[in-house]
Design a binder for these strands. Sequence first.
DNA 1: GTGGTCTAGACCACG
DNA 2: GTGGTCTAGACCACT
Lengths: 120, 120, 120, 120
Amino acid sequence: MVRIDGRSSQPIYEQIINQMKQNVIAGYLKPGDMIPSVRRLALDLSITPGTVAKAYQELERQHVIETLRGKGTFITAGASPLLAEQKKEEAVSKVRDGVRQLKELGVADGEIRSLLNSLI
Amino acid sequence: MVRIDGRSSQPIYEQIINQMKQNVIAGYLKPGDMIPSVRRLALDLSITPGTVAKAYQELERQHVIETLRGKGTFITAGASPLLAEQKKEEAVSKVRDGVRQLKELGVADGEIRSLLNSLI
Amino acid sequence: MVRIDGRSSQPIYEQIINQMKQNVIAGYLKPGDMIPSVRRLALDLSITPGTVAKAYQELERQHVIETLRGKGTFITAGASPLLAEQKKEEAVSKVRDGVRQLKELGVADGEIRSLLNSLI
Amino acid sequence: MVRIDGRSSQPIYEQIINQMKQNVIAGYLKPGDMIPSVRRLALDLSITPGTVAKAYQELERQHVIETLRGKGTFITAGASPLLAEQKKEEAVSKVRDGVRQLKELGVADGEIRSLLNSLI
DNA sequence: GTGGTCTAGACCACG
DNA sequence: GTGGTCTAGACCACT
């Protein structure tokens, strides 16, 4: 469900955050589902519980998960549409940004147009 | 010619690298032009010379500038087309990446198409 | 009679304590009334008996309820006025505290006065 | 500037957060001021740097401080009015809450009124 | 020097 | 069992 790339420069806790979100968006995790406990995931990934805890706390701050004391940690009700919307915003900015850069570089509109058409 | 944002999470030396490249692509700096000495630029930006030196080393490694001992540091002959090509590649990947993400999120082709059309 | 919010950061046993007291103050529970057994309430709330027991122990320690072995658990004779007085003290401190903070923040007496008047 | 109460049940990092904010509100810390480094404050308070770091990260997330990489950590420009407004909101809710509780307890309006008047 | 990240433990309250 | 907090170190990139 979560896989860590130890060679990545991206902090482990960020990798966990992103992959958890991805799992929700992809539908592998649904609202109400329980996710592995801090200790369990730490064991699975061979990392320390503190790192997992940091990821979980950030996910909770972003209302993606919620913890029920003593019971475990769960995907929140609104997580799925929330994340999908965020990811879409991200992707749109990326495209917008790329096109803006191409224009700044003086690439002809015709070339940009054919690039875009080839991608749809 | 170069402006630093101390609040940005992007390292200062990277900001220098990118802005130098941008200056070349935009034509503000042409092959053969001399750029400020490490100490001069450090003074202008109120940062330590080490940070500027790190940026210059990386630019030299990428064959964007070259140092002639005792004379100064200069934009290399081939810098301009080289950088333009690199930046274009970057921008194209960005667009490609964004579109790929939108598709993965299940955004309808029609919506993607109208987004792209609105950007050209 | 008692409703638990599993999402609250307030421990469940504290929620039980407060709601029991509230029920007494509001008159829903009167001195001499029997309250549900530990097991019964635990079943109703879908929580473990230990949590209910912890709440009952604390309520007993505060002389709000008393257990008659073999008969059940009951609201004590003096519970009602005792709790009303405690809650009133709490509320008064809250107001006093808030006003003190507003003064410390330099809020004008006039503004404080109009705030208070709007609340009566 | 910051004093820790080891006997308090409030987490140390929260104590640091609150006292830093208080220092800003009180004017002991002004926008642009540098605050002690993570290691320095940890030494002063005889706690571990991790605990200080956690407090600083939360303060940064709340836009009270900002870090300039390699240089240190500073009070942000807008911190002072931001915090004053937050604290005022807090105090007002406290008063409102207390008054609401008094009414729920059936305290006579006249008594509430004289309490409030005694506080102004 | 600075903060950011991580490890490998520990103790606590809660359920 | 759960997560929250803390300790006492370490390494890293950046300045």
